[in-house]
Every structure is written in structure tokens, then in C-alpha cells.
């Protein structure tokens, strides 16, 4: 069986582009992210420009996605279809926001910032992965 390398290569390229964009946007910097959340202090609206730009491109691209029967490199699209607003969604998002505010970090920027070789960032990423595993092993389906 030969391994199809096209999907990993696509993932590699998209990951690199994602983190290049994060770097350009300034959102690799926890201080800028935290400043966006500091609405009643020294507010920095930059993150709104980042999110606005990203959502605009993705929204335009969704027109193309909806016209496609299948993705380029796989059999079918795996897009979440649920519309149910349930407790894990709200509670999880609230918990996520507390961590986001405390450290000014979220998963994408934290991983990309690993490239700078800062030990506290690496420790934070390990804690983040531990949190994911703790959820998937012990909390999933119990909230």
C-alpha cells in the first residue's frame, strides 16, 4: 500500500500559510491578543481586522465549496452539521475564553510561537495538549 502524500503536503502548506498570516497579523503576540480583550482599558482593535479579513476570504471561498461535490483530495466534505446550542458548547467556550484572557494565547498562535524557542510558550503548549487529553479522556460526554 502506498501512502498518499498529497493530503499531508496540503496540510503542511496550509499550516505554514496559516502561521505566516498569524505572524503578519501580529496575533502571534499574546500582548496584542490580550489588548484586544482589554475593552475597558488600552483597547487594541487589531484582532477585529484579522478576524474580519479571515472570515471575508473564507466566506467567499464557501461559495466555491458549496458548488463542489467533493474536496480535491478526498471523497467527501466533513463539515459539522449540528445546529444544537448545548451545554458543552457554551461551557467549553466560556472556559476557553478565561484561558485566552489569562494568557493571551489560543491554540494556533501558541503552536506557531513555538518556532521562537521560548520555554514558557512550550510549557503552555504542553499544558494545552494536556487539557485536550484530560477533556477527551475524562470529561467528554459528562458535561
Amino acid at each position: 500500500m502506498s501512502i498518499d502524500l498529497r493530503q499531508p503536503l496540503a496540510a503542511l502548506g496550509c499550516g505554514a500559510l496559516f502561521a505566516f498570516g498569524l505572524s503578519l497579523s501580529g496575533m502571534l503576540d499574546p500582548a496584542r491578543v490580550k489588548a484586544f480583550l482589554d475593552l475597558f482599558g488600552a483597547w487594541d482593535p487589531s484582532l477585529a481586522f484579522v478576524l474580519g479579513g479571515a472570515v471575508s476570504v473564507a466566506m467567499a471561498g464557501m461559495v466555491l465549496v458549496r458548488s463542489m461535490a467533493r474536496p480535491v483530495l478526498d471523497e467527501s466534505f466533513q463539515i459539522p452539521q449540528s445546529r444544537v446550542i448545548d451545554r458543552p458548547l457554551v461551557l467549553g467556550s466560556a472556559v476557553f475564553g478565561i484561558g485566552w484572557g489569562l494568557g493571551g494565547i489560543c491554540p494556533g498562535p501558541a503552536l506557531a510561537a513555538l518556532s521562537l524557542g521560548l520555554m514558557p510558550v512550550a510549557v503552555c503548549v504542553l499544558a494545552m495538549i494536556a487539557g485536550m487529553v484530560i477533556h477527551d479522556r475524562f470529561l467528554s460526554g459528562r458535561v
Binding site: G92, F96, G99, I105, L126, A127, G131, D136, L139
Partner: peptide
């Protein structure tokens, strides 16, 4: 922060 982000995101 990392723990809360990890648990909350999942």
C-alpha cells in the same frame, strides 16, 4: 491558561 484553553476548546 493552557489547561483551560485545551479543555475549553475541546
Amino acid at each position: 491558561a493552557g489547561l483551560l484553553v485545551g479543555i475549553g476548546a475541546r
